[in-house]
């Protein structure tokens, strides 16, 4: 903190620095000569130079920020995607699009899974029932009438098996396709990440500039850095970069260890 502050302290716009030096020399001469009205005008000039330098810096920053936000658009590959994406004007809309799209894919996948599971259950049950009869047949414990029944049943089962296998295959293909959200949402998220990075860079510039402005205006801030997280258990969502951290568990096993150490 202090290091960067020391560095920025010596940084002023060279042009401004030169004018500051020149005008304060003139000011001193005027005061020494007793020409106070001219000295006052010189002070006004100095203030103007300071203000102008300040406006210039802030103006430059504002332009950069505007540019970053304007440049934030997505190169969709086809007209349908362009229409879809051009509707979204800002980053939060884009992120909502990601949530919607991932939600839609998750639900589509679960629809298909829920449609497929009963097929598997039914096939399994029918196969088990036929298998039982089949064993009886092999042990020659079956009446001819029963055998004819089994014969029809096997025939029906094989037909059902073919149809259901096709359905399962089709559902699995659709589940595969439902993962295409990764591509589109990935593009959107990369765009938002780029914007955030640009905004961050510009904010860092703003902070550096603000410290220059502080130097120009001679402002000293009393910053309170002791604003810590109140109890350390506020919800944070998934933890990233868990490796090497001791305050975060890396999986269920560590949760279980921790809880059992607490007497669970």
């Amino acid at each position: 903190m202090t290091d960067s502050k020391e560095k920025s302290r010596s940084k002023l716009d060279p042009e401004f620095e030169e004018q500051l030096r020149e005008k304060s020399a003139t000011l001193k001469d005027l005061v020494d000569a007793g020409d106070f009205p001219a000295a006052m005008r010189q002070i006004n000039d100095l203030c103007e130079v300071r203000d102008q330098s300040l406006y210039r810096e802030v103006g430059r920053l504002t332009r950069t920020l505007h540019e970053s936000i304007r440049n934030f658009h997505i190169d969709a590959h086809n007209l349908e995607q362009q229409a879809e994406l051009s509707k979204m004007a800002d980053a939060s809309d884009r992120l909502k699009y990601v949530i919607d799209m991932t939600g839609r894919s998750a639900n589509r996948t679960m629809d298909l899974v829920e449609a497929t599971m009963p097929l598997a259950t039914a096939l399994r049950e029918e196969a088990a029932a036929i298998s039982e009869d089949w064993q009886r047949l092999r042990r020659r414990e079956m009446e001819p009438a029963e055998f004819r029944e089994l014969y029809k049943r096997v025939d029906g089962f094989l037909g059902q098996l073919t149809t259901d296998a096709d359905t399962v295959y089709g559902n699995l293909s659709e589940i595969l396709l439902a993962q295409d959200y990764q591509d589109l949402t990935g593009q959107v998220i990369q765009r938002v990440t780029t914007l955030v990075r640009e905004v961050e860079d510009n904010l860092v510039q703003l902070v550096v500039m603000a410290s220059n402005v502080d130097n120009i205006t001679g402002t000293v801030h009393d910053i309170d850095n002791d604003n810590k997280d109140e109890d350390g258990i506020r919800a944070e969502g998934p933890q990233l970069h868990v490796e090497g951290r001791t305050d975060v568990v890396s999986g269920q096993d560590e949760v279980d260890d921790l809880l059992s150490s607490l007497g669970f």
Binding site: G237, P238, Q239, S250, V255, L258
Partner: peptide
């Protein structure tokens, strides 16, 4: 998804019966 040790301890102290991390 909350995976901080302090959070798990807090949940245990609050009387949770089980804790599964996503």
């Amino acid at each position: 998804a909350e995976a901080k040790r302090d959070q798990i301890v807090a949940a245990a102290q609050a009387g949770v019966n089980g804790y599964v991390v996503k």
